[in-house]
């Protein structure tokens, strides 16, 4: 308990947690926005979709971590470079999971009924596409929590003075083992809490009209 208090007062753990959370969340949201843009383009023009899949096939095998120095050079030593690492790391997997679901929904015979009964576009978008994509959104998010947090922490462990990655590295260099273990434990708790978010979103969305 004292150790936790020490982390809170002396090391401002809350600020570091928020910093990591911010980098992870910004990278994740950007990856979803970019994925959705690519999905819409791909659904509209099949050749664009083929091109995107070709590019994904080409670039997917590159380990994202090795791109970090490149991002630092391009964007400078700042949070934008760190967020970009998370974005680049999550983009392809989120795109692939969501695209396959949206494509499945696009060609589903159920769409015929929406057309016959002249259902409004906004309703189709929300009740058919968005609600239909919820399972895929949930699984892509769960994938993202583990990998995205790892990338955020790696990005913070070099050329940074904040975040859980910075703190873990600092404790390791000073051989502050109890603090190190506790911080790692906090990362696990953070990941656990992030994993609970989809349930809340599902509960909010799956209510009657």
């Amino acid at each position: 308990m004292n150790l936790l208090l020490n982390l809170y007062t002396e090391h401002q753990i809350l600020e570091h947690v928020l910093s990591t959370f911010q980098i992870f969340l910004s990278g994740l949201i950007c990856s979803y926005i970019l994925s959705l843009i690519l999905i819409v383009l791909g659904l509209r023009w099949s050749n664009v979709r083929k091109l995107i899949y070709f590019m994904v096939g080409l670039l997917q095998p590159i380990p994202r971590i090795v791109l970090f120095p490149l991002l630092l050079i391009l964007m400078g030593i700042n949070d934008i470079a760190r967020t970009s690492l998370v974005l680049v790391g999550l983009l392809f997997s989120n795109y692939l999971i969501l695209d396959s679901q949206f494509n499945h929904l696009k060609w589903n015979p159920l769409k015929k009924i929406l057309k016959v009964y002249k259902v409004q576009r906004l309703k189709i978008l929300y009740y058919y596409y968005l609600r239909g994509a919820l399972p895929a959104l949930g699984s892509s998010y769960k994938n993202s929590v583990g990998y995205g947090l790892t990338l955020a922490i790696v990005a913070e462990s070099s050329f940074s003075n904040k975040g859980l990655g910075f703190l873990i590295w600092k404790f390791w260099e000073r051989y502050d083992m109890p603090e190190l273990y506790l911080t790692i434990g906090l990362v696990s708790v953070l990941a656990l809490l992030l994993n609970l978010i989809p349930r809340g979103i599902k509960w909010m969305m799956v209510r009657s009209i």
Binding site: P109, L110, K112, I113, L114, V116, Y117, K118, V119, Q120, K123, Y127, Y128, R131, G132, L134, V206, S208, I209
Partner: peptide, 26 residues
């Protein structure tokens, strides 16, 4: 107004029956 009775089930499975019906303004 046109309605279509298909061979297969044509309700959106993740919505309730009420929600399926509420989609249709007609």
């Amino acid at each position: 107004r046109i309605s279509f009775l298909f061979q297969k089930n044509m309700l959106i499975p993740w919505l309730t029956v009420q929600e399926n019906l509420a989609l249709i303004d007609q």
